[in-house]
Amino acid sequence: MRRYEPVFYIAPAFIVLAIILFYPLGYSLYLSFHNWTLRDFRQGVPFVGLKQYINLFSNPEFLNAIRITFIFVIAAIVLEFILGMALALLLNHDLKGKGIIRSFILLPMMCTNVVVGLTWRLLLNYDYGLVNYLLSVVGLPRLEWLSKPALAMPAVIMVDVWNTTSFVALLLLAGLQALPDEPYEAARIDGASWWQQFRYLTLPLLRQTILVALLWRFIDTFRIFDVVYLLTAGGPARATETVSIYVYRYGFQSFNLSFASAASYIMILIMLVIAAVLARLIGRQD
């Protein structure tokens, strides 16, 4: 009886998850090998083998969506880590009003994505947006942030940086506060500079925290939908069409759910491979 005690506690959550998640995911795997569109599903769903996957990889828009997604993921994460680390180091000082500062900095990451996307769409508007007004005040030309392909991606990245740098900063700050004092005292006695302490003590000691933050940020940026959908809807000219937007377009605008399922599975595969690599790095001690 005792042996089965853990089952009583853990099983309910897993049973619910299995019903609402693994069954649907199995079904979409099935769909991806068949031809199911909302228009003609009554005539049955013919088995088509790997046809959906072959079509997918010969579809230049899909390859574009993957490329766009990785540009976004890498640029956003790099900026968020540089700014987040800087912010964490600043907040690690003994500041007055620490609690209230931390609360304020936390707010962007809690905001409703829809509101974030639309607020920035207003701020970045060409004619009456505040960003262009500020540019014109300092004598710079106004920019077509959301309608020029070359600028739309930087705009999306900028909004994501605003939205989630605080997440990275607060995780790193928690890591910094858990660091031991002794190595730093020893380093100071040896006359190590600020940069040397950061490079040879802080970074290696924070390795675990950094990797976990990296894993979460990867998962989160790779799936981005809401903010892009409301800022640019993937445009102009698919310059910001991430994989999520691409699947949405095929699945819920053209209602080709088999094709969308195949694209979903490629997305899951990419995600799991990268997440597994990061998880392995996290598990390995140095």
Partner: peptide, 30 residues
């Protein structure tokens, strides 16, 4: 509880949160 595979199960419970929502909504919609 400490039992064999507890770590694996804990990680398995996290996988759903890693899956991009767009990939879950397609089958859920059907």
């Amino acid at each position: 509880f400490r039992f064999r595979g507890v770590q694996t199960l804990r990680l398995a419970a996290l996988v759903p949160q890693m899956l991009p929502p767009i990939t879950i909504i397609v089958p859920l919609y059907v």
